[in-house]
Computed example of a mutant assay.
Amino acid sequence: MFKNLFRRGQADAAGDDSQEITILAPVDGEVVPLEDVEDPMFSQKMLGDGLAVRPTSDTIVAPVSGTLTQIFPTGHAAGITTRQGIEVLIHVGIDTVELKGEGFTKLVEQGAQVEAGTPLIRLDLDKLGKTAKSLVTPVIITNMDKVEQLTRSTDQSVDAATSWLLKIVPQKK
């Protein structure tokens, strides 16, 4: 479902592909192992590998610089492709697509070049707290075949655009 969201070739291929990529927290909150996310698509790593964050703030920011290759019309998920071709999916909550955009405000348009820390989505935490099954936000690398090494943060809590969540070493070409 999500693995083919990203249009190949949009990311700038310039630069050293073996350089480590730091993926920052997209929102303030508590770190949750992917295996503990209450959705098998994420917990069984069907879409890729990563970590999740239980939000304590209302703004989802770009966890990495790159091209915003996907932002869902409902505002519940976004995908960024780094210049090295690593695809990062930020999926706000569990089954939140069913809310049809209620509680989400998109702050950027698909195709935009974003820097780590760029605000992407504003959350209405009051509304979502009453209607969403869960706001746990998985941050997934959807093309793990391009990853040589993945390191997960061991922090219990993170700050958006400040704390690192994942470190990636891309496969050498």
Rank of each mutant, 00 (worst) to 15 (best):
R7W: 05
R7I: 13
R8Y: 03
R8I: 02
Q10S: 10
Q10M: 15
Q10R: 15
A11N: 12
A11C: 04
D12N: 11
A13K: 06
A13R: 05
A14P: 00
A14W: 00
D17L: 10
S18R: 14
Q19S: 09
E20T: 11
A25M: 03
A25P: 03
A25T: 06
P26E: 04
V27M: 02
D28A: 01
D28Q: 00
E30Q: 12
V32K: 02
V32C: 04
E35L: 11
E35H: 07
D36T: 06
D36K: 14
V37M: 01
E38L: 09
P40A: 03
F42I: 12
F42E: 11
F42H: 02
F42W: 07
S43M: 08
Q44Y: 04
K45Q: 14
M46P: 11
M46S: 14
M46L: 15
M46D: 12
M46Q: 15
L47D: 00
G48K: 05
G48P: 09
G50L: 06
L51S: 05
R54N: 10
R54L: 09
T56V: 07
S57F: 02
S57N: 00
D58Q: 07
T59K: 08
I60Y: 03
I60H: 00
A62S: 15
A62D: 13
V64Y: 05
S65G: 09
G66M: 09
G66L: 07
T67W: 05
T67F: 01
L68G: 14
T69E: 14
I71M: 14
I71N: 12
F72D: 08
P73L: 06
T74D: 09
G75I: 07
A77H: 11
A77K: 10
A77L: 13
A78Q: 02
A78Y: 04
G79Y: 11
I80W: 01
I80H: 01
T81Y: 06
T81W: 05
T81V: 13
T82E: 00
R83V: 04
Q84N: 07
G85A: 02
G85N: 00
E87I: 04
V88G: 03
L89G: 04
I90T: 14
I90G: 01
V92W: 02
G93S: 10
D95K: 10
T96R: 13
L99H: 04
L99M: 05
G101H: 08
F104N: 08
F104K: 08
F104V: 07
K106C: 13
K106G: 08
K106P: 07
V108I: 14
V108G: 12
E109K: 15
E109A: 15
E109H: 13
Q110W: 09
Q113M: 06
Q113I: 09
V114F: 03
E115H: 09
A116W: 03
A116R: 02
G117R: 09
T118P: 14
T118H: 12
T118V: 14
